[in-house]
Lab assay of single mutants.
Amino acid sequence: LADDRTLLMAGVSHDLRTPLTRIRLATEMMSEQDGYLAESINKDIEECNAIIEQFIDYLR
């Protein structure tokens, strides 16, 4: 059971955070005209990261 939990934490961490990191990188490359959009996307990314952290904390 502990091994399954560790594997799940690693999978969640990698499989969800990697795309979020790519999205954040894309927002950094957006033009200044789209700053409001990038800010909104980054806020959503932070919310997703917080949910992931809560899930990982729960698994521990």
Score class of each variant (00 low, 15 high):
Met9Ser: 14
Glu53Lys: 12
Gln33Met: 04
Glu47Cys: 02
Leu59Pro: 10
Glu47Thr: 02
Thr27His: 12
His14Ile: 02
Ala2His: 15
Gln33Glu: 06
Ser31Gly: 05
Ala50Thr: 03
Asp4Arg: 11
Asp3Met: 10
Leu16Asp: 00
Ile23Thr: 14
Glu32Met: 08
Ser40Thr: 04
Tyr58Met: 15
Glu28Gly: 12
Gln33Thr: 07
Glu39Pro: 14
Leu37Val: 03
Arg17Asp: 11
Ser40Asn: 13
Lys43Cys: 13
Ala26Arg: 08
Asn49Trp: 15
Val12Gly: 03
Val12Cys: 05
Leu8Ile: 04
Asn49Met: 14
Ser40Tyr: 08
Ile41Lys: 01
Gly11His: 09
Asn49Ala: 02
Ser31Gln: 06
Phe55Lys: 00
Asn42Gly: 13
Thr21Gly: 12
Thr6Phe: 12
Asp57Gly: 09
Arg17Val: 03
Leu16Gln: 01
Leu7Thr: 05
Met29Trp: 03
Ile51Val: 12
Asp57Ala: 08
Phe55Glu: 03
Gln54Asp: 00
Ser40Lys: 15
Gln33Tyr: 14
Ala2Glu: 04
Gln54Trp: 10
Ala2Ser: 09
Arg22Cys: 00
Gly11Glu: 08
Asp44Ser: 13
Phe55Asp: 03
Ser13Leu: 12
Met29Asn: 13
Ala50Leu: 02
Tyr58Leu: 04
Leu7Asp: 00
Ala2Pro: 12
Ile51Gln: 11
Ala26Met: 01
Glu46Pro: 10
Asp34Met: 12
Tyr36Pro: 08
Asp34Phe: 14
Gly35Met: 05
Leu20Asn: 02
Met29Ala: 00
Ala2Leu: 11
Asp44Ala: 03
Tyr58Gln: 06
Thr6Trp: 15
Asp34Asn: 13
His14Thr: 01
Glu53Tyr: 14
Ile51Lys: 00
Leu25Ala: 15
Asn42Thr: 03
Lys43Pro: 12
Phe55Ser: 04
Ala50Met: 04
Ala10Asn: 06
Asp57Glu: 07
Met30Leu: 05
Phe55Gly: 00
Glu53Met: 12
Thr21Ser: 14
Tyr58Cys: 00
Leu59Gln: 10
Met29Cys: 04
Arg5Met: 01
Leu16Met: 02
Leu8Gly: 15
Ile41Val: 15
Thr27Leu: 02
Glu53Ser: 14
Lys43Leu: 03
Ser31Tyr: 07
Gly35Asn: 07
Ile23Asn: 01
Thr27Cys: 03
Glu32Val: 06
Lys43Ile: 03
Leu59Val: 08
Glu28Cys: 09
Asp15Pro: 00
Glu53Arg: 09
Asp34His: 14
Gln33Val: 04
Leu8Gln: 00
Ile45Ala: 05
Thr21Val: 10
Leu25Asp: 04
Glu47Gln: 04
His14Arg: 00
Glu53Phe: 15
Thr27Ala: 03
Ser31Trp: 00
Asp57Arg: 11
Leu1Met: 12
Ala26Leu: 15
Gly35Ala: 06
Met30Trp: 02
Ile41Leu: 00
Ser31Phe: 06
Met30Arg: 06
Ile23Tyr: 03
Gly35His: 09
Tyr58Ile: 08
Leu8Asn: 14
Met29Tyr: 15
Thr6Pro: 12
Ile51Gly: 03
Asp15Gln: 01
Thr21Ala: 08
